[in-house]
Amino acid sequence: MKLDINNLSELINDRIAQLDFGDKPLELYEPIRYIMQLGGKRMRPILAILGYSLFDENSNNIIEPAIAVEVFHNFTLMHDDIMDRAPIRRGKATVHEKWNDNVAILSGDVMLVKAYDLLLKSPDDRLKKVLLAFNKCASEVCEGQQFDMNFETKDDVSVEDYLEMIRLKTAVLLGFSLELGAILGGADHVTCQHLKQLGTDIGIGFQLKDDLLDVFGDQNKFGKQVGGDIIANKKTFLLIKALENAKGNTKQELRSWLEKKDFDKTEKVLAIKGIYDQLDIQKITQQKINEYFDAGLKRFKALEIAAGKKEHLIGFINKLMNREK
C-alpha cells in the first residue's frame, strides 16, 4: 500500500466498518459497533502505521494490529465514561446512557478481547514482543485512570503528579502505537524504545493541548463544550498552575469558585478564565506543550533513518502540535 497520510484515516475507518465483532446477542455487539463508528481522530492506528513505514513500505502488514490499538482505546473510553458518569462522547450519547452500565461493562470487556484477536494477526516471530509491550501499556493506562479518579478527592495534586497521570492514562498508548509499528517493522530494541518515548512525549503534549483548548479553544472548532473542565473543577495543568501561582485576593477568589456548589456555569467559566489571564496560564501551558513536542521531535531527528522516510511522521506530529480541535 502506498502511504498517503491524507487517506490513512479513511482507510482505517473503512477497515473498522468491515470488522466482524459478532451478532448475537444484539445488546452485546451493537454498542461496540456504535462506539467504533462515532469517529475520532484515529491518531493511534495512524501512528502505528507511520511507525511501521519507517522500516517497511508495505503498510498492509500492520493494518489489523494498528486497528487493535483503536479498539482498545475505545474500550477504555467506554469504561471511563461509566466511571466519570459522562453523558456525551463525540457529540452522541455514551454507551452507558444509551443502554445501561451493565451493557457498557460487558461490551467493553468483549472489545478488549477483540483487541487481542487483532494483535494476533502479527507475525509469529514478533507476536510475543507485541503482546508483552501491549500488556505493559494496558496496565499503565489503568493505573493512569485510577490516579485520575484519586485526584477527584485529593486537594494537593502537584504538577508532577498530574504529568505522571496523563503520561499513564493518555501518552503511553501513543508511545505503544509507535513502538508497535517499529516492532512489526523489524526495528531493533533500542530503536523501538526510542520511538516509544517519542510517542509518549508527543502524547503528553497532546493532552496538555487538550487541556488548553478546553479553556481557550474555539467552540466551533473544538467540537465539545469549552470550559467543561472549569465547570467540573477538573484538576488540569492549568488549574494546578493557577493554584500554585495565585496570591492574596486572586487565590481567595479562585478557591471560592472551586468551593461553590451552586453557580452559573457561564459566569464561573468567565471568572476563572479571567484569573488564568491574570496569571499568564495560557502562556505557561503553551510553553510546557512546546517542551514536550520539542523533546519528541528532537528524539525523532536523532534516529538514523533516511529523511525521506521521516517526513510523513514529522508532518503528522506537526499537525497534532498545531491542532485547534
Rank of each mutant, 00 (worst) to 15 (best):
L3F: 07
D4P: 10
D4I: 10
I5S: 13
N6Y: 12
L8Y: 06
D14N: 12
L19N: 02
D20S: 04
D20K: 11
D23Y: 15
L28A: 11
L50F: 10
Y52E: 08
N58D: 14
S59C: 05
V69M: 13
V69T: 09
F72T: 10
F75L: 04
D81N: 12
I82L: 05
M83F: 01
A86T: 05
P87K: 00
R89L: 06
R90K: 11
K98I: 03
L112A: 07
D117N: 15
L127S: 04
L131A: 13
L132S: 15
L132Q: 14
A133F: 01
K136P: 04
V141W: 00
F147E: 12
D148H: 06
F151S: 08
Y162E: 05
L174N: 01
G175T: 07
G175H: 05
E179F: 01
L184E: 04
A187P: 00
D188Y: 08
H194E: 14
L195I: 09
F206N: 01
D210Y: 07
D210T: 12
D214S: 03
G217K: 08
N220R: 02
I231N: 13
N233P: 03
E244W: 06
N245W: 00
T250L: 15
T250A: 11
R255D: 15
D264C: 08
K268N: 03
Q278Y: 09
Q286I: 09
Q286L: 08
F293D: 04
D294C: 07
K298Y: 07
K301P: 15
K301V: 12
L303S: 07
A307R: 11
A307M: 01
G308H: 02
K310W: 00
L313H: 03
G315H: 12
F316M: 14
K325N: 15
